[in-house]
Design a protein around this nucleic acid. Structure first.
Lengths: 336, 336
DNA sequence: TTGAAAGCGTTACCAT
DNA sequence: ATGGTAACGCTTTCAA
């Protein structure tokens, strides 16, 4: 582990020049810069993290708080963690994990020990206890998800209302008049922050367009997705020709299977659009149109905002919504 | 953010006394200790992380490297990450995440910047590139999983061979003579480190006991677990009365469903034992006997070893195997 | 464009 | 049992 002193000696300059050359906070002559970079490479120099944290104003670490709830969907959660890490690395930041009970107590701990420059909040509940905590600590924080009470907080999320609206628009444009939403289990509408937004976006846009719109919230799947199957049957019995799916991938599979069991063909007999999926809807048969939730988009924005807060730039508190995009996979057509 | 200086002043002692009182590295009179603890509480003092890293010999951070492979089983992976974090907190250590490409390059980075005291390696592949890296860097590292070439490394894992052996023992004791293993997809035997160990444990113990033992490696599941179903059919057709399952929870469900479809009842007609499951096998109907893989056990041991390495205690390089335990849930009985 | 030197807040050694 | 103080390795202000 070479130190800055050795680099300075090797390059024939002072340590402050080395520091400035590395941080870019001061103009350095081309020749001097070249010699320093050479020395850095030769010695495989890397600034000591502790010294940097102590002397500088930055730790180059963000905390990521994630209370693995029992109902957390592991694959989606993993995707968000990964996306956060990738986004942070673009700014040379690392991610420190705060899990479980530590998700709250840890926030206080890392804040007052100066271990991190900011906190990214994942897996947000409507009445999340981390909301108060975020207001109390002196660190910048960004919520990935929207709690009910988000006054004064910086939040990032997909515009789920608009996403559901896009799905409804598509079906309406094709001539569907009777549409249905297959949502999450009822409990998710209390414990998670986004299902209600999909639902209201669906209902509002349908009402604006004068469509007949039903919502089904299947009970938690049995081993074979019985809940979702029952929901799909109910919707089809009611003459639904356009299905909007906002459920996990097993739910999608069950719904499509139930449609097929009826002898109905997608998109000829029934049109199907997925909303808010983090998984690949082209893996189904047939591939399904999707207005996806893209973890990397949310996390990139969250980290951008966190960086701005760290830099001291002012960021408008409030919900920063990400515009949804419609992915056409051929699973929609005019009603029969 | 109070500093140690303020605590010292409030308690009427020197800063070194405060430091020693907090670290416990020196005996402090009861009265002095009381005053210091009071001052710490009053001021909500927490040592500055950067200063601590710089002055002390420790950063109190472990890196956790995890290359989210495409075939990574998200729920199991999450369980390991969580367990690692919990184990680390017991020693007042935090977890820094190194994901994806950073899983390797990051190891070098955090090692030479002195950001962490050690590296925990998750999701180990048989020919893992982190093996060489671990040997090259100067930091302690502990592998949770066993790579093919683990010479000189400290590895921790469930004794999968013994686990499979326990399952075979159980079936043999009950009188089963024809048993079968439903394993992972063939590719897992190249990309992961533990499926081969379950397989060989199964085959070896069965051979020792003179049982007829077959192994089925189902192709990756279709939507309904077709691969596993075919494997179960093949085994039952061959007169198998004892089934050992080493697959994911969807595979378990498919296998049990296939048994039921045949009109066979567990355990009356067929006995079933799960090996290496990280999920709850009591949620099936009927509940299934299990020789589980307990993430917290592996991670606790891994962190214990990492701590010893950090302390400078010498730890025997090699594979530290965790003894498996048999959980009786009533899914085994003598053959019909 | 560059250098010197004063911190940053602890830990741990050397005294007493 | 306690105190003084020299590191720890960097960033940044002040000077030139």
């Amino acid at each position: 582990m070479a130190k800055i002193h050795e680099v300075a000696k090797a390059a024939g300059v002072s340590i402050s020049t080395v520091s400035y050359a590395l941080s870019g906070k001061r103009t350095i002559s081309a020749e001097t810069r070249r010699r320093i970079e050479q020395a850095v490479r030769d010695l495989d120099y890397r600034p000591n993290a502790g010294a940097r944290m102590l002397a500088g104003r930055r730790t180059n670490i963000f905390a990521l708080t994630e209370p693995f709830r029992a109902d957390t969907h592991a694959p989606a959660h993993m995707a968000f963690v990964l996306a956060t890490s990738i986004a942070a690395r673009r700014f040379d930041y690392d991610i420190l994990l705060l899990t479980e009970e530590e998700a709250s107590a840890g926030m206080r701990r890392v804040a007052s020990s100066g271990l991190v420059d900011g906190v990214l909040v994942l897996d947000v509940a409507p009445d999340d206890e981390r909301v108060d905590l975020a207001r109390r600590i002196s660190l910048p924080s960004v919520f990935i998800g929207v709690p009910n009470d988000h006054e004064g907080l910086v939040c990032v999320d997909l515009d789920f209302e608009a996403a559901a609206g896009l799905a409804v628009d598509r079906l309406a444009e094709l001539g569907h008049r009777v549409i249905g939403l297959v949502g999450h289990p009822p409990v998710a509408y209390e414990k998670s922050n986004f299902p209600p937004r999909v639902r209201s976006g669906f209902e509002r846009r349908a009402a604006e367009l004068g469509l007949v719109a039903s919502v089904e919230l299947p009970e938690p799947n049995g081993r074979r997705g019985e809940g979702v199957r029952a929901s799909v049957r109910a919707l089809l019995d009611a003459g639904t020709t356009g299905l909007v799916l906002h459920c996990d991938d097993a739910g999608h599979a069950a719904a499509l299977d139930e449609v097929a069991r009826r002898g109905l063909v997608v998109p000829h007999d029934v049109s199907v659009v997925s909303v808010g999926a983090t998984f690949d809807t082209t893996a189904f048969h047939p591939p399904i149109d999707s207005v996806p939730l893209v973890p990397q988009a949310s996390c990139d924005l969250a980290v951008d905002l966190a960086m701005r807060l760290v830099e001291g730039d002012d960021v408008a508190p409030g919900v920063h919504l990400i515009e949804p995009g419609y992915q056409d996979r051929g699973s929609t057509a005019p009603p029969p």
